[in-house]
Structure formats: structure tokens, C-alpha cells
Simulated scan of single mutants.
Amino acid sequence: MDIRLFRPGALLPAVLLAGCVTASKPPKPYLPATEVPALAETDPVGTGNADAADDPAIWRNAADPAASLIVATDKKAGLYVYGLDGKVRDFVPAGALNNTDLRTVRMADGSSRILVGASDRTDKAEPRIALFSLDGARAKLTGLGSDSFLPAGHAPAEAYGFCMGAPLAAGELARAYVVLKDGTVMESRLVERDGAIVPEYLRKVKFATQSEGCVVDDATHTLYVAEEDVAIWRVALKAPVLAGEAVAHVGEADGLVDDIEGLAIARDAGGRGWLIASSQGDNAYALFDLGTGKFAGRFRINGGAIDGTSDTDGIEAVIGDFGPQFPEGLFVAQDGDNAPQAQNFKLLSWREIREALGLR
């Protein structure tokens, strides 16, 4: 089942005036934000002198929180595993993996597995989902294959954003969402078949322009998608037809300066939750209360012994105990300018973000 979203004026043709001089674009606004320092950073990705680091995911080790892990993409080369000290624990050369997500799934034999997925755009005409198994104790990744999920007859397309959500029907391990570069979001279910985990296409929703960041709120079975120059959209996943409802727009009222990039959900043990968005255009992060839908504040990563961030693509947040340095939770953000080294990821304490923004 498909639906396409339009806004007033979306179908008007663009008019180009030959011989006219186009005025330079005005600078993007730099909106107020509270500064919060990074407490740690990862080793740089291996691809230097390029836009390479992109998107992180967090695995919390409940038995030993300080031994938790971060999985993150070098979108030119593959997938990294980092410890909370920022040191590389593993790297898998796996091609052009753009966005990543992970979750613990229950297999048919009753065992559990830390399943890592990523949007694979190694072939820019045939989007794929690359899957891996993460050994939390050894901090090692094992490749499970990369499979196409496009339905028969679909036009060539480039995989871009990626996120996973809880299963919504019997026999599923999880739901997977790939955001194509043209704004189409493809929903698949991940299932076991002949000893392998594979995606099976289900349905899609189409946004009007380029989109990438996405995240699923399992508590409400809601998908959030960032249409980069326009808005954050909310999609009810249990509805018979996927449809988008705008919840925040580019502009000062919602604290967002285009591009809107990575999205993350942070929920505490009491059920209180926040949607976090990378306001890439002014190097900041905007929060929205998931209970009220209201804008809840903005922060920038700056100050302290570690440099700040700029041009952030992917982000991730998990509330919970991550050891003495991150006692209430962990926030991870890609840094688009880590000069003179290659790009990397910055680690922040959720407690410091919460206190800085007065979140209760």
C-alpha cells in the first residue's frame, strides 16, 4: 500500500530566467543553544580527507554497562565497533554502508542475537540491507549477507537512511526501514528463511524530497522520518496505510535549520521520551517531548577537553546506566569536521544534556 505526500505548490513548475543574475543565498540562521561538552570521542574512521563517518548505533551491556559498544559506519568502507573509550574493537570491510541500527532479536530456536543492519548503497541502482551479528562479549561482527528488498518491477534506487523497529506480526524478527534518496521509505520484515535472515518487502510511503534520518519509537510503534529541507514526519506503523504527519518543521519555531539529518529516540524507565534531531545547518541538536509534542530545547556539543561537532549526520541516544562516565545514558553524534584527523564520533553524558536543558 503506497501513499505520496504533497504540499501546496509542490506541483508548480520551476521557472528559470535566462540571463538573470541569481542573488547569493542568505546565510542560514544560527539559533541559540546550550553548550554541552563531549566526554569522549572515537578513533577516526579509516577513510581520510572525505565525508566518511556517518551513523552510530548503541548496544548497552546490561551485565557490564561500562563494556557497552558503539557500532558506526564509514560509508566509504564498512562498519566499526567501538568501546566507550572510543577505541576500535572491530572493523568489517563491507562496502558503502550509510546508516546503521541494531536490536536484540529472538530466533526461532529460542536463542537471542544482537542483529545489526545497515543501508547498503554499494550498488547505487539496487538498494540492499546488509545484516551482521554482533558478539557483545567479544565486540566482534559477523556478516550475515546483503540482500535486495525491492519488489519486482521497481525502478533503480539508492539506499540512504536505515532504522529498525520491533516486529509487528508473528514470525518476524524485526521490521526494517530503508529511506531511499528520493524520499521513498521502504518497509520490510526481517525473517528467518532456510537458515538465513532475509528482508521481505511489505509497503512504502513517499515523501516529496530527499530524506535520510529515521528512527522507530517501539513504545508507540511510530516511525519518524527527516525530510531534510522540510520537516520531521510521524508515521503510525500499525495503520493499514502508511501516511505521514508533520511534527516539526524547518524554522526557528521548531529549532531546526536545514538539513535535518539524524534522528534518535531517548526514553527513560518511567516512559518519558524525547525525539532528538540533528539540526545540521547550524551545528546543533533539537529535542521534542514525545508526550506533548512540544519543542523541548537545543544544545551544541562544545567546551571541555574534546573538540565540538559540526555538520552532524547520524546520532543515537540510549537512556540507562553506561558506567561511571555515563551514569544516566549515552548520546553519540557524528562529527563532520574532526580536522586534522578524519571524521569520528563524539560521546556525551545524557545526565549533562538533561541538566543543561532542564529536562525532568
Rank of each mutant, 00 (worst) to 15 (best):
residue 34 T to S: 13
residue 102 L to A: 06
residue 169 A to G: 08
residue 61 N to T: 04
residue 7 R to H: 12
residue 336 G to V: 04
residue 110 G to I: 10
residue 96 A to Y: 09
residue 351 R to G: 07
residue 95 G to N: 05
residue 298 R to F: 15
residue 224 Y to T: 05
residue 265 I to Y: 09
residue 143 G to R: 01
residue 35 E to W: 05
residue 314 G to D: 07
residue 232 I to H: 00
residue 168 L to I: 05
residue 214 C to G: 08
residue 29 P to T: 10
residue 77 A to W: 06
residue 25 K to H: 13
residue 336 G to P: 04
residue 215 V to G: 05
residue 196 A to V: 08
residue 346 K to E: 05
residue 148 S to N: 06
residue 265 I to E: 01
residue 51 D to V: 10
residue 246 A to P: 15
residue 271 G to N: 12
residue 212 E to Y: 12
residue 237 L to D: 12
residue 122 T to P: 04
residue 243 A to N: 11
residue 264 A to F: 09
residue 341 Q to D: 08
residue 72 A to T: 13
residue 265 I to M: 14
residue 345 F to S: 02
residue 86 G to A: 10
residue 306 I to H: 11
residue 341 Q to M: 04
residue 289 D to M: 03
residue 3 I to P: 02
residue 323 G to S: 08
residue 185 V to F: 09
residue 287 L to Q: 00
residue 251 G to D: 03
residue 8 P to V: 13
residue 164 M to G: 03
residue 288 F to D: 01
residue 219 A to S: 15
residue 67 A to T: 08
residue 251 G to S: 08
residue 272 R to T: 15
residue 200 E to Y: 09
residue 311 D to Q: 12
residue 322 F to W: 03
residue 67 A to N: 14
residue 120 D to L: 00
residue 70 I to K: 02
residue 72 A to I: 13
residue 296 A to E: 04
residue 168 L to M: 13
residue 172 E to V: 10
residue 44 P to G: 09
residue 351 R to D: 14
residue 31 L to D: 07
residue 90 D to M: 07
residue 140 K to Q: 11
residue 108 A to I: 04
residue 299 F to N: 03
residue 186 M to A: 15
residue 70 I to S: 04
residue 183 G to V: 02
residue 92 V to I: 09
residue 183 G to P: 02
residue 16 L to V: 14
residue 32 P to E: 14
residue 181 K to Y: 10
residue 8 P to D: 14
residue 44 P to A: 10
residue 284 A to G: 15
residue 262 G to F: 01
residue 73 T to K: 03
residue 39 L to N: 05
residue 154 H to V: 01
residue 84 L to V: 12
residue 245 E to V: 13
residue 182 D to N: 15
residue 93 P to L: 08
residue 172 E to L: 07
residue 357 L to G: 04
residue 285 Y to P: 02
residue 251 G to E: 12
residue 25 K to P: 09
residue 303 G to L: 12
residue 66 A to Y: 02
residue 96 A to G: 01
residue 186 M to F: 09
residue 260 I to T: 07
residue 156 P to M: 07
residue 258 D to M: 14
residue 129 I to T: 01
residue 186 M to R: 15
residue 165 G to P: 06
residue 218 D to S: 14
residue 308 G to R: 03
residue 350 W to D: 03
residue 280 Q to L: 10
residue 158 E to N: 06
residue 174 A to V: 08
residue 55 D to N: 14
residue 358 G to Q: 11
residue 213 G to L: 01
residue 88 V to R: 12
residue 287 L to H: 00
residue 159 A to F: 00
residue 270 G to R: 14
residue 51 D to L: 03
residue 181 K to E: 10
residue 275 L to I: 13
residue 319 I to N: 04
residue 321 D to K: 05
residue 259 D to Q: 15
residue 24 S to K: 09
residue 30 Y to V: 14
residue 213 G to S: 03
residue 222 T to V: 13
residue 59 W to H: 12
residue 120 D to K: 00
